[in-house]
Simulated assay, not measured.
Amino acid sequence: MNEQAIMQEPTVTPASVGIRYGIMTGFASIIFSLVLYLTGLHLNKGVTYLGTIIPIVGIILAYRYYKKENGGFMSYGQGLGTGTILATVSGVLSGIFTYIYLKFIDSNIIEQIRNASIEEMENKGMSDEQIEQATSMTEKFTTPEMMFLFGIVAAVILGFILSLIIAAIMKRSRPEFE
């Protein structure tokens, strides 16, 4: 192999960076969730939406690392792959934590979420019959198992969308003729 071919080979892959930063992002999300559960802020939608900052920061840091390790270059596809893998790993870790926490540590949180949902529906002026219908549907989806599944799916979808945007901003393609 000649020297030029060696210089063009990436030193890290989208998968390796995605897994590495996915683990870090997952643990940051777990800590954030734990703080919300312990302080009772998990019912405050405004505060929970702040959790979206965690995957954004994770993706940006992963892209910066990837580019640093690859001579300052990252294609759009490499960024999209890295971010999606990161989101998947992070989502699985967060999902496992949520499942364990809600199933074995504090199952009252699910009841708190259901009660807050009922209160929100009452404030919107829904009838008792409508609230009962909605509550019966909500109960099916607010089990630790369903929250685990939906948490992973939501993390992957959010991570993919964020990766689409952030990769478009941060990409820097390698020149075709070096």
Rank of each mutant, 00 (worst) to 15 (best):
G51A: 04
S94K: 01
Y63G: 01
S107Q: 06
G40F: 08
A5R: 06
T135S: 14
Y49P: 04
R114K: 11
G77C: 06
G51E: 13
V35E: 07
D128A: 10
N70I: 06
L158F: 05
Y76P: 11
A87I: 04
V92G: 00
G159R: 01
Y21S: 02
I19S: 04
L149T: 11
G72K: 08
P144V: 13
I110N: 03
L149P: 01
L61R: 03
G40H: 10
F104G: 06
G51P: 05
I59Y: 00
G83F: 00
Y99E: 03
K124E: 04
Q4H: 13
M146C: 14
L34I: 07
T143Q: 08
S107G: 15
M24Q: 12
V89E: 05
S173Y: 13
S16R: 07
Y76Q: 08
M121R: 15
N108M: 07
V12A: 11
E129L: 14
A168I: 15
M147A: 05
Q130M: 11
K124D: 12
K67E: 10
M7K: 06
M7H: 14
P14C: 14
Y66N: 07
I105L: 14
T98S: 13
T84E: 08
E132C: 02
Y63D: 00
F141P: 10
Y63W: 15
T84F: 01
Q4E: 10
L158A: 03
S16A: 11
Q112D: 03
A167N: 01
L50H: 05
I53T: 11
R20A: 11
S107F: 08
G51F: 03
L164T: 12
I110C: 14
I110Q: 12
Y76E: 06
T142P: 00
Y49H: 10
I56C: 12
L93V: 15
Y99I: 06
Q130C: 08
T98H: 02
P175L: 09
L34V: 05
S173I: 13
I152Y: 04
L41S: 07
M7I: 10
I54E: 00
E178H: 04
